[in-house]
Amino acid sequence: MFEARLVQGALLKKVLESIKDLLNEATWECAATGISLQAMDSSHVSLVALNLRSDGFDKYRCDRNVSLGMNLTNMAKIMKCASNDDVITIKAQDDADTVTFVFETPNQEKISDYEMKLMNLDTEHLGIPDTDYSCIVKMPSVEFQRICRDLSQIGDSVVISCTKEGVKFSAAGDLGTGNVKLAQNANVDKEEEAVVIEMQEPVSLTFACRYLNSFTKATPLAPQVQLSMSSDVPLVVEYKLEDMGYVRYYLAPKIED
């Protein structure tokens, strides 16, 4: 028996919104420690890895590990039936071929349940090597979203260049060029407004705008985003979920032909 209850059901709705652009289907791996998911987009350019720890749920029971393969478009249709203040419970029997979502209003006066068919997905779990990144940038997630949106008007790719002074995002296209520079700025009133750079050595990497824009669907999940970069390895874009876990995106760089 698997059962996970989240009073803050809106969080689950936001998590789904953050991945459904990139992934049509994925397997939610449910274990005693929590729920995890790892999947690549259909072009195998990016990878999503998320973790929702069991202690972040209000009630969590997982007698044995279950893999819940879901069509995320269909899951999103069902999640749209939950109000933002609903309590959401996910339930599945061991070896079940369906999953049940229960939505309760805070006053318990309306309870809805939706049963969805599960899929058998042939998913390969990739090993992600531990990496000491050359540059780690922490910045407001809304700012990152804005920069990705703005520069995707200019070109298909963004060059992210990081030095200890700051981080620069650049795009070039038929109409011209655009550059956005952010200086390191830890002395702000609010912690979430800070731009903090930890640099071992400067890096400059090129990434496809399309994927960066998809990653920013996670913006409502966290006030800050963390970008981890090293030469010739995938960029990591991480949104931390308070007291719960994380949503991480990995994006393979573009390289000179």
Binding site: M40, S43, H44, V45, S46, L47, E124, H125, L126, G127, I128, P129, S157, T206, A208, V233, P234, Y250, L251, A252, P253, K254, I255, E256, D257
Partner: peptide
């Protein structure tokens, strides 16, 4: 520029 894939960095065990 050429787009690399994730599988050229991360391998299935």
């Amino acid at each position: 520029m050429a787009q690399k894939t994730i599988t050229s960095f991360f391998k299935a065990p």
